[in-house]
Amino acid sequence: MAFDLERTEKEFLSSLREIRTRDELENLRIKYFGRKRGILTKIASSLPLLSLKEKKILGPIFNHLKGELRQSLKERESDLSSASPKSTKEIQQKPLTSSLLFDPTAPGKEVFTGHQNPVISVIEEIKEIFHYLGFTYIDGPEVDLDLYNFQKLRIGKDHPARDTQQTYYLNDEVVLRTHTSSMQVRYMETHKPPIRVLFPGRTFRRDPVDATHLPSFYQIEGLLVDNDSSMTDLIGTLDFVIKRFFGSKTKTRVYGHYFPYTEPSIEVEVLHKNGKWMEILGAGMVHPEVLKNGRIDPRKYRGWAFGMGPERMAMLKYGINDIRLFYNGDLRFINQF
């Protein structure tokens, strides 16, 4: 066969898409519909030479196509006239497709974006919420001296509280920090009050691995020191942060607890959708001895501190039940965030 209707249609439509002026449009019309040399005119004149059988099939298809193309040409013409005649650059670039091929239900072209680990998203969100309250942030050593991780926080070598913080050691003096509270005294030693700062970072516990325990995980420590801080400020701040993070109707409860480095100490729980209370953070007023260890005069200043677990917060927020998912790198998981 001397002609290919499908190709002719494609070529016509792609040329039509490039058209920016009326002159170009007129040239295209002549190219296809011109009385003597128009492509479609030529095809029409060759149709009678086909066999009867071919004529029966191709005749109606050709006529249909011719109608379609003429219609497209008209649509394009009206597009051009509706655009400002002064500036050809502002012509609407509405993509043109034959109405036969238009399928609004077909999926769009797939776009690939990067996804952030939800633990990091949580940390970033918490940083932002606290930023509103005037807190800045900084991280420090993950492998730290026993001195900063324990002793300066009133946890001596023989303190029973060490039981609750199973510790990895490099040697007698150096530990993998068991909490970001190790940053408290480090920061106080080099900064004068007033202090409002977060210490987000990785921490380590020598726990058997299961759905809720990993050898390394993140914590966000917060520290405020000024001359006027109180438990009501601490409880109010935590309540605001939790409600901003989990939703304004989130239910929380606070109860007394024990940490050697805060006095009084509290823990805070959030009511989960499943009806269970989930502990998400520990907090308290900085113990006067800890302030002293940080070279801050406890007679002039007081402060409060807290520590929260971003994994646990992400688990609560997104309904994740296995902490290992955050760290096994499965993109089928990460791509959901």
Binding site: D226, S229, D233, E263, P264, M285
Partner: peptide
């Protein structure tokens, strides 16, 4: 401070009013 804790925990922290830190945010390095 240990005594404040005794009072606070028995009084029940959930009965405390909720306030935010006083004063303007400090300028830190």
């Amino acid at each position: 401070e240990d005594i404040y804790e005794e009072i606070g925990r028995i009084y029940n922290y959930n009965n405390f009013p909720k306030t935010l830190p006083k004063g303007s945010p400090p300028i830190q390095p």
